[in-house]
Computed example of a mutant assay.
Amino acid sequence: MNLALWIAAGVLAAVALTGGYSKTFVPRKRLAEIQGGGWTADVSDGFVKTLGVLELLAAAGLILPAALDIAPVMVPVTAVCWILLMIGAMITHGRRHEYPLVGLNLVYLGIAAFIAWGRFGPESFGG
């Protein structure tokens, strides 16, 4: 179970790193042209960049606290925050009728829920 949780955290961290990098460093107008990025045309640059930074922090928060043994409880806390982010993403894509993206967000939400459950419960870092 511990290995499965580490793999899930690694996969989700890679997703967060990729999304965070693009939202933080790719111009919003360019993001709006990419499939699934149309929502960025409806919000400010600051909002997109803020989401990007939050995703970069999530990537770090899913791995580093446990790997460095510094406040490892932050791993499941980060996973819960990711769940909230995915609920917002599903609402946004649902309003735009981008149902395949809603499904993808649901998969990411499920992975985060698995991490939160496992790290708060049977495979917690607490001892």
Rank of each mutant, 00 (worst) to 15 (best):
G61S: 09
E55F: 05
D45V: 04
M1T: 14
A113V: 11
I111P: 02
A116T: 08
G19N: 14
Q35L: 04
E55I: 01
F120T: 09
L54Q: 07
Y21R: 02
L3R: 13
A13H: 12
P76H: 01
G88H: 12
I111Q: 01
P72H: 13
G61V: 13
L68Q: 08
T78N: 12
T24C: 11
V75F: 10
L3M: 09
N2M: 11
V15N: 05
H93C: 04
V80K: 07
D45H: 09
G94A: 03
L51W: 13
R28V: 14
K29Y: 06
T18G: 10
L84Y: 08
I63V: 15
H97L: 11
W6V: 01
L5I: 12
P76D: 00
M90L: 04
G36E: 02
L17W: 08
V102F: 09
M90W: 03
M86R: 12
D42C: 06
Y99V: 00
F25M: 05
R30F: 04
P122N: 06
T92I: 12
H97K: 15
W82L: 07
I34G: 00
A60S: 13
G88F: 12
R119W: 08
T92L: 13
G19C: 12
M74C: 15
A32S: 15
L31I: 13
A14Y: 03
T18R: 05
G36N: 02
C81G: 15
M1V: 14
E98G: 01
D69R: 14
D42P: 04
F114T: 01
L101F: 02
S22A: 12
V26I: 15
W82P: 00
T92M: 14
L101N: 00
P65A: 02
V80D: 06
M1I: 12
P100V: 11
F120Y: 14
G10K: 09
A32I: 04
Y21C: 04
I115A: 04
L31R: 08
S22V: 12
A9N: 03
N105V: 01
G127A: 12
M86F: 15
V15E: 03
C81N: 13
T24H: 08
A9S: 15
V48Y: 05
T78S: 14
E123K: 05
